[in-house]
Amino acid sequence: MLSRTAAAGSFFATIKRELLDTSSWPSRAAAHAAIFDFVEGWYHLHRLHSSLGYRSPAE
């Protein structure tokens, strides 16, 4: 089981690798909107959850 610190680090590493390192943002507001869309539109729906038998909520 991951500690809260490790889980947070993994989450932020995923956002950095999957979103922030792939584009440049014209403003802080644009980056904020992209992060929100990433978390709500992909991360919550597709990441694997141990409580679901390592399946995604979309499955």
Rank of each mutant, 00 (worst) to 15 (best):
M1S: 13
M1Q: 13
M1G: 12
M1N: 09
L2E: 12
L2K: 07
S3Q: 06
S3Y: 07
S3E: 05
S3D: 07
R4D: 05
R4M: 00
R4W: 00
T5M: 09
T5W: 11
T5A: 14
A6N: 13
A7C: 10
A7E: 12
A7D: 13
A8W: 09
A8N: 09
A8T: 12
G9P: 06
G9V: 05
S10W: 08
F12W: 14
A13M: 12
A13K: 14
A13G: 11
T14C: 04
I15T: 04
K16G: 02
K16D: 07
K16I: 01
K16N: 00
R17F: 04
E18K: 10
E18N: 09
L19E: 05
L19F: 02
L19V: 05
L19S: 03
L20H: 03
L20K: 08
L20P: 12
L20M: 10
D21G: 08
T22M: 10
T22Q: 15
T22I: 05
S23D: 08
S23W: 07
S24T: 11
S24E: 14
W25G: 00
W25H: 10
P26I: 06
P26F: 02
R28L: 13
R28T: 08
R28C: 07
A29L: 12
A29M: 09
A31D: 01
H32R: 05
A34C: 03
A34Y: 05
I35F: 00
I35W: 03
I35A: 02
F36M: 01
F36I: 04
D37Q: 11
F38I: 03
F38G: 02
F38R: 00
V39S: 03
V39L: 05
E40G: 13
E40I: 02
G41A: 08
G41L: 10
G41F: 02
G41C: 11
W42H: 07
Y43F: 15
Y43W: 15
Y43M: 10
Y43T: 01
H44Q: 13
R47H: 10
H49A: 08
H49N: 10
H49Q: 12
L52N: 15
G53H: 09
Y54C: 00
Y54E: 01
R55N: 13
R55Q: 12
S56T: 11
S56D: 12
S56A: 14
S56Y: 05
S56R: 11
P57L: 15
P57I: 11
P57W: 15
P57H: 14
E59M: 12
